Each structure stands twice: as structure tokens, then as C-alpha cells.
Simulated assay, not measured.
Amino acid sequence: MLRLTVVDTRGATSVYAVDVRKAGDGHDGRVRARLYRDGSLVALSTLPARFAVPGGHIEVAVGGFGLRRCHYVRTDGSTSPLTPDPASAEGRRADLRRRHPRVSAMLGTMSFLFVFAGLCITVPQLAETITRIPPVAASIGVFQSPVQLPLGMNLLIGAAAVLGSTERALRMRSGWIDHLAS
């Protein structure tokens, strides 16, 4: 859950919270965002979502590995990300970044490298598999992947890429590599 404290034009303070259940709702499996004001549900929307709040709106979008965007956009166009709940996994990752910035930076670099390595290994192998389909092979030929790894190594690299993607999702980071992987 991500939080935002807003002071309206009368000086009243409200805490808005956005909850996105990434696994989807139980009855139909669609991913929805819920907006709470001071603990009460005030809006529900499929994603991407845009919720009006005093002084602007909250934009929410989800990607393949977590939230792609959850920002407060002020009426002047400036933006700021919402703050993760300290008890959530995202909040604990933000706390690690605050308390141990070097460890956090090292984990961030490792997660990027894991995802990048996963893509570098998987894409050529996937291209080879696709070009072995008879109609594709007949029209463009068969691509021979320069990367030939045993199944165990492929599984290990795939697991590392998933861990790296999970860590990036916990940091609420989204970049070109995440868009390729999702």
C-alpha cells in the first residue's frame, strides 16, 4: 500500500492510500487499484487508473513485474511518488535504501545485471526456438543461438532474473529493461 498526505484548500489533512493487488481480484482475476481516504474505500478502478484528489490526481499503472507508476500529479504538472507503507515489502526495501545506501546500491546493480543476463541468454534461445517452426524456417531460415547452456544453468539464470525483477519491483523502479522483460 502506498500513501500520500494531502492538505485541502480548507486546511484539512487527509491520508490517501492506494492498494493494488497484483495477483488480481478473486472473483474475476482483473487487477484493480483501490483508493482509500483516511482508511475508508472511496474509489475502485481497473488499471491504468487516475484518481482525483485535492490539488491534483494520483496515476497508477502496473507492469509485468509490479507497479510501473504510482505518482501524485499536482495541478501545476509536478509529480512525486507515493510513499510505501513501512510494513509492506516495498516499505522495507525503502527503509534498507535509507539506512544502508551502499548495500541498497549493490543490490540494485546486482538486480539489473541478473535481469540483463537473463535477457541476453533467453532472447537468442527463444529466437532459435521460433525459427525452428517449419513455416518460419522455410521463409527466413533457422537461427543458431550462440548460447548453448545445459538445462540446469538456464533454470538458474531464469531464477536469478526473476529475483532481480522482484527486487526492482520492490524498489518501484521501472525502466527499459523491465519493459523488455515484462
Rank of each mutant, 00 (worst) to 15 (best):
A49F: 02
R30H: 14
F65L: 08
R30K: 15
H57E: 03
T75R: 14
L67T: 01
L67D: 09
R34H: 12
R69L: 08
I58P: 00
E59G: 13
A49E: 00
H57K: 01
F65K: 12
Y72W: 09
H27E: 09
P54E: 03
G26N: 09
S40W: 07
G29W: 08
S45Y: 03
G56S: 11
I58C: 04
R74H: 14
Y36R: 05
R32D: 11
V73F: 00
V31P: 01
S40D: 07
L35D: 01
G66R: 15
R34M: 08
R30S: 09
A49W: 00
L67Y: 07
L47D: 00
R69Y: 04
T75V: 12
Y36G: 04
Y72A: 10
G66K: 12
H71Q: 13
L67S: 06
G63H: 07
R74S: 15
L67A: 05
V73T: 03
G26M: 11
A61N: 08
C70G: 04
G66P: 10
R32H: 06
G56R: 10
V73C: 03
V60W: 00
A43Q: 09
G39L: 00
R68E: 15
R34A: 03
A49I: 00
L41G: 10
G63F: 02
L35T: 07
T75N: 12
D38F: 11
G56I: 03
A43S: 08
V62I: 04
L47S: 02
G24C: 05
D38I: 13
V31M: 03
R74Q: 15
R68Y: 13
V62T: 09
F51C: 05
H71D: 15
R68N: 13
V42K: 10
